[in-house]
């Protein structure tokens, strides 16, 4: 609409073509792991010269991989259970603060996103080792909760920005307690944001490598920790099988989020 008429018609298609190519660059590489996971070879080769399900068998029959998957799922769920209420409460409380306090508190809450995770990891390692909690699930969950907070906070703040405060005041004037207001007014209205924030918090924990590397150990090693070791030492094709399953989870999570958004609007 703003392009000048002098540009030849052929050139007009170029931006769209470029946009499509960039989207392919963003999205396509991840999906390459799917054919790789059905490879029958021991080494990395694309396209694979033979096909099999052996890497999926390998994954599900290995106690190390299986226990890592269980740990990751558990840590992810606990991270959501902690970071979602904390972040939601913070985003709600922020509405009634003065601009200066809001900026300060918001800045502190964004810290986990800007401090390099290696520093959180080794710092947390030192702190936890002084209270003999290195390798414990608790330490890892609390670390992941801190890392997930900025995301939950941002998503929930955006949710509250669209939330009509009048509804809350109406409920209040009709005699509802704070508790009832949250259960019956605020939370149902923010359902879409809650789903998005919860999923993102889960994915944050599920994908987190560095903190898990230092803080989780032995029995409590998470999936990314084991995957990272497998990728760094030798390129184990089992990683392709896990990656495909994680990718499937990502697709489902994203569709769930899009659907919850659509329902809301």
């Amino acid at each position: 609409m703003t392009r000048s008429g002098l540009v030849p018609r052929l050139l007009r298609g170029l931006p769209a073509l470029y946009a499509v190519l960039l989207l392919v660059f963003l999205v396509a590489p991840s999906f390459l792991v799917v054919p790789m996971s059905f490879s029958g070879n021991d080494f990395l080769e694309f396209p694979p010269s033979s096909w099999s399900l052996r890497w999926y068998r390998e994954f599900w029959s290995s106690p190390t991989w299986r226990s890592a998957a269980v740990t990751s799922g558990l840590v992810g769920l606990l991270t959501v259970a902690l970071s979602l209420p904390l972040g939601t409460l913070a985003a709600s409380a922020m509405r009634r603060m003065t601009a200066r306090w809001r900026a300060l508190a918001g800045g502190v809450l964004m810290l986990p996103a800007v401090v390099p995770s290696i520093l959180v990891a080794i710092g947390l390692f030192f702190v936890l080792s002084s209270v003999k909690m290195v390798g414990s699930l608790t330490g890892l969950v609390l670390g992941h909760t801190a890392l997930a907070l900025p995301i939950v906070f941002v998503v929930m703040s955006a949710g509250f920005a669209e939330f009509d405060d009048q509804l809350e005041r109406a409920a209040e004037s009709l005699g509802a307690t704070r508790w009832r207001i949250w259960i019956d007014v605020i939370l149902p209205n923010l359902r879409g944001s809650l789903v998005a924030a919860g999923l993102l918090a889960f994915v944050t924990s599920l994908d987190e490598v560095v903190v898990a590397m230092f803080v989780s150990g032995g029995q409590n090693a998470t999936l990314p920790k084991v995957m990272f070791a497998a990728l760094r030492d030798k390129i184990d094709p089992t990683v392709a099988a896990i990656s495909s399953q994680l990718l499937l989870f990502a697709v489902i999570a994203m569709l769930a989020m899009l659907l919850s958004r659509r329902k809301k609007s």
Binding site: G87, L89, A90, L109, L142, A146, W182
Partner: peptide, 20 residues
């Protein structure tokens, strides 16, 4: 819920990010 609500989150970040 209205004003102190931000404290638990701040505390979490303080203990698990700032303190480290």
């Amino acid at each position: 819920l209205g004003r102190i609500g931000v404290m638990p989150a701040l505390l979490t970040v303080g203990v698990f990010v700032l303190l480290p």
